[in-house]
């Protein structure tokens, strides 16, 4: 389903623009890698762009976001700062974290990502505990993949969140695979079943239209703010490799995955071109910058 032009055309345009920005940003990264202009590693969120675009629309400035290794979309949906993010990934001047953290370790007020799976859930619970006291009505939103449900820390945190009525929104990006392992080989039962075990609210989302997703989620998120944690499980495809060049799925299987992009690009060709060009400019600009400096050790 596409972001539809209903009664809020500006919002729809903004949603579409954000999804396209993330798509072109991620594609540009893979391209830079292929040309040998990036080192290290990166995890693109191709196919999952609508998740942070939908979720960010429900978040306020006091809310806190915890992101993971596949976090470029989370960041761009929250800050619309492709320059700072690309500079971070390329280690150039203007990098959000001076080139120290790189792709998976980003921090800005109200936002933090880390590359150790499962680590962020207890931290999010701690932030939620703080927010409940000092910013009543604010929440901590933590993004987590299906594979990271293998980590014990996740369950310790969920237990606390339920017991302590923490304003914690857990956004699960269930893309059916973790690195090379299909979810079926790593998860007994379901996310919904695990939520039920802790008596936590759970909802399952399959669409790709941010406005529709928000409409469904809004009342549940309002309850999170009042201390009723929620596990929002998005079913999404992972269209790209885990990082780069390491996809072991058969090409036909990947090609058969649903992708929102072709329909949106056809419906909004100018916006698509504008975002593609914007990313190209960002790449040109950041590539020409001097190396990032790290002074505050």
């Amino acid at each position: 389903m596409l972001p539809a032009l209903v009664d809020a055309p500006d919002q729809v345009r903004a949603d579409r623009a954000a999804m396209l920005l993330i798509r072109h940003f991620e594609t540009a990264l893979l391209d830079l890698f292929a040309r040998g202009e990036l080192s290290g590693t990166t995890h693109t969120c191709l196919g999952q762009e609508h998740v942070p675009v939908a979720v960010s629309g429900l978040l306020g400035p006091d809310d806190h976001v915890l992101s993971n290794h596949r976090g470029h979309g989370h960041y761009l949906a929250r800050f619309d700062d492709p320059e700072g993010l690309l500079a971070e990934i390329m280690g150039r001047a203007g990098a959000v974290c001076h080139g120290v953290g790189g792709s998976q370790h980003i921090h800005r007020p109200g936002y933090l990502s880390t590359g150790v799976q499962g680590e962020s859930l207890p931290v999010a619970a701690g932030l939620a505990l703080h927010l409940r006291r000092h910013r009543p009505g604010a929440l901590a939103c933590v993004y987590i993949g299906d594979g990271s449900w293998g980590e014990g820390a996740v369950y310790e945190a969920l237990n606390l969140a339920a017991l302590w009525h923490l304003p914690l929104l857990v956004v699960v990006e269930h893309n059916g695979i973790a690195q090379s392992t299909p979810t079926g080989q790593a998860m007994a039962g379901t996310v919904a079943g695990r939520a039920a075990a802790f008596g936590l609210a759970h909802t399952r989302i399959t669409g790709t239209d941010p406005a529709a997703i928000r409409a469904g989620l809004a009342p549940l998120v309002a309850r999170v703010r009042a201390g009723e944690p929620l596990i929002a499980e998005f079913h999404v495809p992972r269209l790209g490799p885990h990082s780069k060049g390491d996809d072991t799925r058969p090409a036909e299987q990947v090609a058969a995955l649903p992708d929102w992009y072709p329909a949106l690009a056809a419906a909004a060709p100018e916006l698509d071109r504008a975002q593609r060009d914007r990313v190209a400019r960002v790449v040109a600009d950041v590539s020409a910058r001097p190396p990032a400096e790290w002074t505050d050790r």
Partner: peptide, 13 residues
Amino acid sequence: GAVIPAAPHLERE
């Protein structure tokens, strides 16, 4: 005595 930065030039330092 520092974390190991991501950017190659900082990592080398």
